[in-house]
Nucleic acid binder design. Structure first.
Lengths: 138, 138
DNA sequence: CATTTACTCTATAATTTTTGTAGGTTTTGT
DNA sequence: ACAAAACCTACAAAAATTATAGAGTAAATG
């Protein structure tokens, strides 16, 4: 399951995507719309900005806005940014790899091999689906 | 990512699967093999038993053993049992459904639709892969 | 150029979930 | 009867997630 953080990130991205022509949008507008704590959402939007998905403007008339096209934002990147690994085990994670403690030899570990396989298949889906797919179905 | 509980469950199932002909196997044998706390593993094996994957025998000479064929144990069932939903959002979970608070109407929610789609694709993989696939690659 | 607005940043508090422990109970083989 | 080993319930500890606080920085505006 996605954390609330990631779920909120998606909601925010969707909202910003739907209102792209409006220019900068206040944190508050989004947080009220979805009933998300202002401060919590603030942190999330900041992460999305640092990751290059959003731009922002300070001061009066400021706010956040998308700086990538919705089709350039795959689900995989949002999930990785806020939730971490997509793989089911650390020992098959591409971005957050860690050896596992239980098995002495990863090369002869069936669990490792199958989970690497699952990861590849999962990634295919999550890299293919983008913010645009979500927006098109709204 | 899988919880340790689920990961340990897989290790135990793999061990029991590899040693099926030995009959009942002690919790302790498995816990020592993988460096898992005896008591923690005990809880896990009990859950696997209640779910119908394992049988057990009490007293001297007792232990646990597989009562399903490895090909009858899909990853999806183990994960659902110990980790819960496979879906990324509660509002698209088949086994642990809960409406989401943010969207007023699920039928017009693009996120819901796309995530339902992701769930279907993920399930295809996790239902297809079974304990047998893991055992074959050991 | 002072004021207001709104994002930026860091730290910390509260809550929830996960992980692990304790200790007694029941069943079984010898 | 005794010892071995699963069964069961409750609780404790640790980690992760969720949320809050408050001071800082930049921009717009009159």
């Amino acid at each position: 399951m996605l954390s609330k953080k990631t779920k909120y990130a998606f909601h925010a991205l969707i909202y910003l995507g739907k209102n792209q022509e409006q220019g900068a949008i206040l944190i508050q507008e989004i947080s009220e719309k979805y009933g998300i704590s202002h401060k919590f959402l603030e942190n999330i939007l900041l992460e999305l900005k640092k990751a290059g998905f959003l731009g922002s403007k300070k001061g009066k008339g400021g706010g956040y806005y998308l700086i990538k096209e919705p089709h350039e934002i795959p689900l995989s990147r949002v999930i990785r940014l806020l939730d971490g690994p997509i793989a089911l085990l650390p020992c098959v994670s591409l971005n957050y790899y860690e050896p596992c403690e239980e098995c002495e030899n990863q090369d002869t570990c069936g669990l490792n091999k199958v989970m690497a396989n699952v990861r590849d298949e999962t990634l295919k889906i999550l890299e293919m689906k983008t913010l645009q797919d979500i927006l098109e179905k709204e």
